[in-house]
């Protein structure tokens, strides 16, 4: 069982520079837990106590997981999970 996770530039310090790594799990939450055991510190950059961090986008294949089931979204072998930091800001 392996799910590919694509890592953005800013988080590659956790993956020794790798653009993509693999992890396992039945849900996104489990996947992130497994990811953190292989690349300690990564989980903290993706989730906080209320769930997925507001300015981190996580996609399962071609869909934003916010439109699926958030951290409870089921994942399966062969899926690709993509992490992208939101591009945001403003004068406020």
């Amino acid at each position: 069982m392996a799910i590919e996770v694509r890592i953005p530039t800013i988080l590659r310090s956790y993956t020794d520079g790798a653009k993509a790594v693999t992890a396992q799990g039945a849900t996104l939450e489990e996947l992130i837990g497994d990811l953190d055991s292989r690349h300690p510190g990564l989980k903290d950059r993706l989730v906080d106590e209320s769930g997925l961090r507001r300015f981190v986008n996580v996609y399962l294949n071609d869909e934003d997981v916010r439109f699926l089931g958030g951290l409870g979204t089921p994942v399966a072998d062969g899926d690709t999970v993509t992490v992208l930091p939101a591009v945001a800001g403003g004068a406020r």
């Binding site: 986008n57 071609d62 993509t82 939101a86 591009v87 945001a88 800001g89 403003g90 004068a91």
Partner: peptide, 22 residues
Amino acid sequence: MENAERSPTFYRFDSMEQFRVW
């Protein structure tokens, strides 16, 4: 890019558009 916030004081890329572009 589309400003998903459509705001005079804030911007955020639409997440699906960002995914396609990236």
